[in-house]
Structures are given as C-alpha cells and as structure tokens.
Simulated scan of single mutants.
Amino acid sequence: MNTPQRRLVERVAEHIKSKFADESSGHDWHHINRVRKLARQIAAQEGADVDMAELAALVHDIADWKFHDGDDTKGPIEAARLLRQEGVTQDVIDQVTDIVATISFKGAGVHTEMKTLEGKCVQDADRLDAIGAIGIARCFAYGGHAGRLMYDPDEAPVMHATAEAYKAAKGTSLNHFYEKLFLLKDRMNTTSGRARAEERTQYMQDFVARFLQEWGTPED
C-alpha cells in the first residue's frame, strides 16, 4: 500500500542501502535488510507496530559503536538526523532512537532491556541475524575486518562484566561464540524470537564442535 508511512520507510531504506552497499564486515545492507524483514515478521506475530519496528530496524546500525571508537551515542544521533530530514515527528524519532541506543549486546554481564514491544522485536531480529549459519559467517567476517585471530587454544573466553570491558576486548573469533553468540538464545525477548533461536543456536554448537575436532583439540 502506497501510504505516506510506506513511502517514508522506503526512502529511509534507499538511504541505508546506498550507505552500506559496499560494507564488508558483516554489517552491510543485506544484514540490515534481513533484520528489517525479521523485525516485521516478529512484530506482526507479537502484535507490535510493524512499521515502527521496520523503521527502527533500518537505522539500527546507522553508526554502530564498533566502527566509531566505542561511542554508542553516535547511532542515535545519526538516526535522529536522518529521520528529522525526512520530516518524522519527534515522538517517532524518540521511540526509534531509544531502540537504536539500547539494541546492542554489551557483554555477558550486561543486560540491555528494551522499553517497548517494538524494541524487543527489533532486538530479537538483530540477535537472530547474529546466530545460525549467517551468524557464523558474520562472526568470522567481522573478526577478519578487526584483525582478530580466528582461534588461539591458549586464550580462554572471557565473560565480560561491563560494557567497557566488552568494548575493549580483542578476543578471537571462536571465543566470540562463548562470549556472546551462545548466550543470545536465552536473551530473546519474544516467543517468536525464542522459537527461531533454538535451531540456530544448535547449528552453531555443532559447528564449533566440528571446528575444534578438525583443529585437533577435542571439546571436553
């Protein structure tokens, strides 16, 4: 349906697609578009505002702290700037930027709870794209981008207690499964998210077990 709301969403989508078309760390347009679609599906199943969830999903990575020296204020600022340019009301901007500010995982000991159902749907969608087969590929893509080792048997995973410790960490890509990815299943907000996360998590666990077997370090 060609409503003003749909036209707004599509304009924002075109802006984000252009901005992230050549990104190669796993935080590209295709990631954002997958999160967008998942967020719509989950929002519809959970009775949330589908358009609000989609809009927030489109801008959720507009300025990720990982690419801005750990500054997690950059994302909400950039999201607000884009939405303001598009004539979005302040109430909608406030809702979207709160989702952007809260969406990221920031350590095993840090809980980032969303205030709205729409935020919970978008956070679940983003976390689902971090796990499963796509999540495995994105983990190693980002690890290579960040100059991290694929694996070091002498380096144990760290359960970071604070956001500061998590942001400063330079652990291996394989450790990231233990430090974040395996934890996401139990941090899903919605019934829809939890149902999807089960199979994806099992897939990752099977992958890591096979990885360690082929490496030559049998898993205990």
Rank of each mutant, 00 (worst) to 15 (best):
E155T: 15
R200Y: 02
D154Q: 14
Y142T: 09
D186K: 04
E199C: 06
E198A: 00
R148A: 05
S173G: 08
E155H: 14
A161S: 15
V158Q: 06
G147W: 03
L149G: 09
A168S: 04
R138K: 12
S173M: 09
A165W: 04
I134D: 15
K167N: 06
T190M: 08
A197Q: 03
I136V: 12
M150A: 15
A156T: 09
E155F: 15
I131G: 09
H160V: 10
A169F: 10
Y178K: 06
H145P: 01
N189V: 09
I131H: 03
E198I: 04
A197E: 01
K185E: 00
V158E: 06
R138G: 06
R187C: 04
S173A: 13
K170N: 12
H160E: 10
H160I: 10
A195H: 08
R196N: 08
T201I: 01
A137E: 15
A163Y: 04
K180P: 01
I134H: 15
Y178A: 07
L149N: 13
A163T: 11
E155I: 15
A137F: 11
E164R: 12
G143H: 07
H160Q: 11
A146W: 07
F177K: 03
Y142S: 10
I134W: 12
T172H: 02
R200C: 02
G144T: 11
F177N: 05
A146F: 11
R148G: 01
R138P: 09
K185W: 00
K180A: 09
P157A: 02
G147N: 06
E155G: 01
P157N: 02
N175H: 06
A165R: 07
L184P: 00
F182C: 01
L174W: 01
P153W: 00
D154I: 04
M150L: 14
R194G: 07
S192P: 13
L184H: 04
A163G: 14
G193Y: 02
Y151P: 10
L181E: 10
M188W: 02
G132W: 03
V158P: 12
L149E: 15
I131M: 05
A197F: 02
A169H: 12
G144A: 13
F177Q: 03
R194M: 07
I134Q: 14
E198Y: 02
K170S: 11
G171E: 06
I134Y: 13
H176L: 07
